[in-house]
Write a protein that binds this DNA or RNA. Structure first.
Length: 467
RNA sequence: GGCGCGGUCGCCAAGUGGUAAGGCCGAGCUCUGCAAAAGCUCUAUCGGCGGUUCGAUUCCGCCCCGCGCCUCCA
């Protein structure tokens, strides 16, 4: 089945196809803001995009996919962080970029082919803003900032259907963003409330962070949206095949990107838009204020593996909100164990390569990962006969599941008393004194340990009491 | 207020106009003295009320409940 993906612009399922004569599929994925460790909700988005990348490679060939994912390394949050820690912006973003890469690697996400950073593309952004100003799509405000004039772009709102939204009294939209931390001075400078910043004039709290702006504008820094327009143009060209991100980016970020790019380049910005849904925790979107935010490190500290998280992320449909539960990680770990056992049972075996088609078909059908997993386990249930090992590996590649056994958990010190009990029970067992052996097992259990017999000895493990 | 999404077995979660995948948990069984591991088996009528239909969980309407977005959050 050919790869199909939901398109946010047309709200329909559409086939993925390279639009350029070179046959290279151009794929841009909005990346992280590097000011702190990304949380597992961020990673849901990146894992989903990783599946897209993998499916594209299987569909068109690894050399026919160009995957770009940016790094936002200058914005309010990165600047604030640097200021609070008394460090340079670069110092802070370098640290968190490295952390992001490490987490991605643990989650088995393929690195994008290009990972452009906003601060490395100031010139490209300034040039783009310049063009927009020259064309009358942007204007300089009193403070030297530059804004995009939304009314100058007829198609504004097509993606998010913002024009169909009615502005009602008392809503966040109308009431000047009450409750949001956007007490932006911008509002006073803009000609229209919906206009957005392309270039932000320097303010004292920006410290050393500033660049020369477009002609006539003050020194400052680029607005958030323009970086993606400029960097996707530089690395993928004026028209790209697919642009993706989390649903929250649909408006205003992607809507604004379209406006900037299309006004600047006079051509279609992206043929296809895809947005993955949010990961919820405790039924709510993760947020610092709710205290329901997890990072990969936190899960690892609880004893969970990155692969288990990846599996959990795949267990929900990418375009449907997924409620994250710690218990799901335990289930995922079990499922992975089954997968490992199955992989071992078919190792080196050749069989019917079409047998796993249902899995690929599910993935090709709008990235239905839960259905794919379901199909996979249905096949596993039928036994290893006729399953082609190489094809199974392709399935694992598509899902990005690394079945290498996780490194053994850090050895926990076994108390001497428990070791002594275990030795006595082993001796009793050798002597076939079952009554004594069973009594000793009970004592070991009471002490909080589990004794697992092997033909030639035994293992001691702390009693399972994970969440 | 606007826009959008969702309510399916104890938990997670696919799916279909003709009586519902899969994972986890649970139960039973087999095999190993016991335990572990492994294997086998079993467990739903799809939020509520109407409508369309030969037939709806699947289509339409209304209601209830939950969630997201509405200017810088993946």
């Amino acid at each position: 089945m050919a790869l199909q993906l939901h398109d946010s612009l047309t709200r329909s399922l559409r086939l993925l196809k390279p639009s350029q004569p070179d046959g290279v599929y151009r794929f841009y994925n909005c990346g992280p803001t590097v000011y702190a460790a990304s949380h597992i909700g961020n990673f849901r988005s990146f894992v989903v995009n990783d599946i897209i990348r993998r499916m594209l490679e299987l569909e068109f060939g690894a050399d026919k996919v160009r995957h770009v994912r940016n790094l936002t390394d200058v914005d309010d949050k990165t600047i604030r962080r640097a200021r609070e820690e008394g460090r340079s912006l670069h110092d802070v973003t370098t640290e968190w970029t490295a952390k992001f890469h490490a987490d991605c690697e643990e989650l088995n996400c393929l690195p994008p082919h290009v990972e452009p950073a906003a601060t490395d593309h100031i010139t490209e952004q300034v040039n783009m803003i310049q063009v927009l100003m020259d064309k009358g799509n942007a204007y300089r405000a009193a403070d030297g900032s530059v804004y995009f004039k939304v009314s100058s772009f007829d198609h504004y709102g097509r993606l998010s259907r913002v024009k169909e939204r009615e502005l009602k009294q008392g809503t966040a939209f109308e009431a000047g963003n009450t409750g949001k931390d956007t007490q932006s001075v911008d509002a006073d400078e803009k000609e229209d409330g919906t206009d957005f910043a392309l270039w932000k004039a320097w303010k004292p709290e920006d410290g050393a962070v500033k660049w020369t702006g477009p002609d006539g504008a003050a020194a400052g820094r680029p607005g958030w949206h323009i970086e993606c327009s400029a960097m996707s143009k530089k690395h993928l060209g004026e028209t790209i095949d697919l642009h993706t991100g989390g649903v929250d980016l649909l408006f205003p970020h992607h809507e604004n990107e379209i406006a900037q790019s299309e006004c600047c380049n006079d051509t279609t910005f992206a043929h296809h838009w895809y947005h993955s849904e949010h990961l919820l925790v405790d039924g709510k979107k993760m947020s610092k204020s709710l205290g329901n935010l997890y990072t990969l490190d936190q899960l690892k500290e609880m004893g969970h593996s990155p692969m288990a998280l990846r599996y959990v992320l795949l267990a929900g449909h990418p375009r449907k909100q997924l409620n994250f539960l710690l218990a799901s990680l335990v289930a995922a770990e079990k499922a992975l164990q089954t997968l490992r056992g199955f992989a071992a049972s078919i190792a080196g075996q050749s069989g019917d390569p079409t047998k796993l088609d249902p899995v690929f078909n599910a993935l090709s059908d709008d990235l239905n990962t839960p259905a794919a997993l379901g199909a996979l386990f249905s096949i596993i249930k039928q036994g290893p006969a006729d399953v082609d090992a190489a094809t199974f590996e392709r399935v694992m590649f598509a899902l990005g599941l690394d079945l290498t056994p996780p490194p053994p958990a850090a050895a926990v010190e076994v108390p001497a008393a428990v070791t002594a009990l275990a030795e006595r029970r082993w001796a009793a067992k050798q002597a076939k004194d079952w009554a004594a052996a069973d009594a000793l097992r009970a004592e070991i259990t009471a002490a909080g340990w589990t004794m697992k017999d092997r033909p030639d000895g035994y293992d001691l493990e702390p009693a399972a009491n994970r969440p």
